[in-house]
Design a protein around this nucleic acid. Structure first.
Lengths: 118, 118
DNA sequence: CACATAGGTTACCAAAAGGTAACTAATTGA
DNA sequence: TCAATTAGTTACCTTTTGGTAACCTATGTG
């Protein structure tokens, strides 16, 4: 579905297939474009990471942020939370295959970002 | 710069090179991850588009949104505004080379999004 | 004349986002 | 015993976001 414009007999323009609501780009962005979301996924790329370790790596993000984002990512199937021991409670977060599938986009983004010295 | 963890003699963990502030992924996202930003860039991919035409194509976004995003994109050098005629005022927006360079990421995102039926 | 188009700007308001800091309970280490 | 760690949770409060709708100047159309 591509959107384009049509002009009627009176010269009035009208969009055909407008993005009434989020098109695929928009939907994708809402999935991985939240504040710190991409960074979190990216930091999980090499395997499971524990909550506090993740927080430490994302020094600019508060625990609340990290927690919130992880919950979002879990609820949309990109991340799994695993309790690796109660009593000392220990938890890890890791990417699901779906989560891993997003790494390709993120890596492109990183490349683009770095090559433009953002 | 990669962030990783180090453990000292006392077993205390500390992050080396944490993302204190936006790492490249984060910065990239803040550049093209805003609401409708990606969609706008994407809709300019085939050449200049006029303001109202763009608004029409992004049916879900208000003029205020489109206006705001275009100004952001202009101010960071991804889009240029061109007045193609005063008296009937007519304006077009088009991607700069830098703006075009973002299309690669966005296309990856679109692919990912579509192949996962978001 | 009345209305539509172009390209916006403005004010108003409600909702969402996000930071800070305190607090939880259980456990381990000095 | 004091302090720190783990994984969060909670309350509070300020800022940002974003939607709506009205308004603007100028031109063109029926």
């Amino acid at each position: 579905m591509k959107s384009y414009l049509e002009t009627d007999d009176y010269g009035r323009k009208k969009a055909i297939n407008p993005c009434l609501e989020p098109c695929s780009i928009e939907k994708g962005m809402r999935m991985i474009g939240g504040k710190w979301t991409g960074s979190i996924i990216y930091h999980l790329k090499d395997g499971p990471v524990r909550f506090n370790d993740l927080s430490r790596m994302l020094g600019g993000a508060s625990k609340k942020m990290v927690d919130q984002r992880l919950k979002e990512l879990e609820s949309n199937g990109m991340v799994i939370r695993k309790v690796i021991s109660d009593r000392p409670v220990a938890v890890t977060y890791e990417l699901t295959p779906f989560g891993q599938s997003a790494l390709e986009c993120l890596d492109k983004l990183r490349e683009w970002s770095e090559s433009n010295q953002l």
